[in-house]
Write a protein that binds this DNA or RNA. Structure first.
Length: 108
DNA sequence: TGATTGACCAACT
DNA sequence: CAGTTGGCCAATC
């Protein structure tokens, strides 16, 4: 059985270290194409459809902006979760994004 | 069953 | 500098 694109995304996101973040494009590129970045977002949306707990709050856009925070059910749930992990978030974006950025192709 | 959208990114105009 | 297009895969209308 071959994993679908979504399952591969989940597998990578789950392996993100605590207190670390990554971008949709990084995951998509790791999987093969930057064009699949949109699918990563969809995978997050479907993440609730899987028994695995997907730390989608650790996945942000290329600018470190919390684009999908609105999908967390609340307004600043995503930012609050990131702050809880030691990540500095301000105005819906990660301040030290460059410091806590995690590249799947680099550490995985 | 075909067309559109979707939490993106990069390049082109 | 800002707006548009192409790309990728899957789900929803």
């Amino acid at each position: 059985m071959e994993k679908s694109f979504f399952q591969q995304v989940w597998d990578v996101v789950i392996k993100i270290p605590h207190g670390r973040v990554t971008s949709y494009g990084a995951i998509a590129e790791f999987l093969g194409s930057t064009g699949s970045a949109r699918m990563v977002g969809w995978a997050m949306n479907s993440s609730k459809n899987t028994p695995k707990n997907i730390p989608a709050h650790r996945v942000v856009n290329r600018n470190g902006l919390l684009t999908g925070k609105q999908h967390f059910g609340g307004r600043d749930i995503m930012a609050d979760l990131l702050r809880s992990e030691g990540i500095v978030v301000e105005e819906n974006k990660i301040v030290n994004f460059d410091s806590c950025f995690w590249d799947p192709s680099f550490e995985l």
